[in-house]
Design a protein around this nucleic acid. Structure first.
Lengths: 212, 212
DNA sequence: CCAAAAGTGTTGGCGTTACACCCATGG
DNA sequence: CCATGGGTGTAACGCCAACACTTTTGG
């Protein structure tokens, strides 16, 4: 049983995913997603996902969620594998080890079923952006509201109105104001925020969403 | 590798799920979900789900979707299984073979992790009710608008306004009007509808949802 | 004093909700 | 003619989207 990962980060106003160049046949030299095998019958799937993420990329996920389980034996030339896929979000702009971040919209053709997995991961992320605070996981704490808005704009692929975004996002009550300011560059310093400790990602309470 | 099923139907204004009484240890006599093992490495997960559904309940799903893959070896006393779970919807009010429909809100305690699976299935169904036409799969075609409204009311667990429901649901353009009428009982006959052939279940087009 | 990003309120339009009566039929 | 569920339109309200200027800082 395999675990395959869609590992996402946001840098330079674009969504990036970790790709990996295959070093053996079949599809030698093709791009693929990082992944590997569950160690043995005693390892949980989630543990395998965390372990493989560390082993393959050297990164730690700030959000990790099961995506889908592919179990169509004929679809992989390497053998009749079941592939459990995970979506991972990484905070900040780290450097992965032994692999590269690619712009999610300009990803090359991927080996095996990995193109489908990537699409499913990115779609899920974009959908969640509309009704959850998962996008906050792309940021290192503390962060500014402008940084939050930037993450949402990248994921939703459109610009948002600053005043509306701030009013609406603060109303979610998902953030905690700090007294610190970030001063950088020749302009007014920005107030810093942290995620509120005991708030879930889901916003089903009031059907709150982001249809700006 | 196991496949376990949450099989749902709606009868007598309540959501029902198929439960199965275990006939062997451990948990002999306890209620559980229908399921079984994937036949061999050549059988796809979806095929296994369809096959086990037929074998265990004698029913055919009008909607079948993968739910989640449970892979925590310590959680099942029978062994270190991976359990791929599916959500199934059955149209009409059929009689399952060798098992029983229970009211989803009054389900007894279930064996193993099946309580979690049931909750996950019912939650998913209720969530999908708000932004998809999956609930139509509970109906045999052709159906009346009142029957559609009844299904949505059962799933959303509240009453909906008849005029608003009709206007909004017809605007989805997910139904096809037929010229037939259903005449039953001492009242005006109801117009019959079918699902529109080429409409997807998802209504992401216009962010349409059901916050009545 | 200039540039650059942070921060802040109000209004009009549209979509949602609330609401009551007539219609067609069988018995 | 009576009971039963089918079928239909409008008006008030609230929420969403659009919009521009002041503040604070570094250089």
């Amino acid at each position: 049983m395999r675990v395959d990962l869609v590992v996402c980060a946001i840098t330079a106003r674009a969504l990036r995913v970790v790709l990996w160049r295959r070093e053996e046949a079949p599809e030698l030299g093709a791009w693929s997603l990082p992944g590997g095998f569950v160690a043995d019958e005693r390892e949980s799937l989630r543990h395998a996902a965390e372990r493989l993420m560390a082993e393959r990329t050297g990164l730690t996920a700030s959000f990790l969620e099961q995506l889908f389980t592919f179990g169509d034996p004929g679809s992989d030339p390497r053998g009749p594998f079941v592939s459990v896929t995970y979506l991972a979000v990484v905070a900040g702009a780290p450097k992965p080890r032994d692999c590269e971040f690619h712009d999610a919209r300009k990803a090359p053709r991927l080996a095996f079923h990995h193109g489908d997995v990537l699409k499913m991961g990115v779609d899920r992320l974009r959908t969640k952006t509309e009704y959850s605070t998962v996008p906050l996981r792309f940021l290192e704490e503390p962060f500014t509201l402008s940084e939050v808005q930037n993450v949402y704009e990248v994921l939703l692929q459109r610009e948002l109105d600053k005043r509306n975004f701030r009013r609406k996002f603060l109303a979610l009550d998902a953030l905690e104001e700090t007294n610190e300011l970030r001063r950088e560059g020749a302009h007014r310093p920005a107030r810093l925020y942290k995620t509120s400790p005991k708030k879930p990602d889901l916003l089903k309470e009031k059907g709150i969403l982001f249809p700006f």
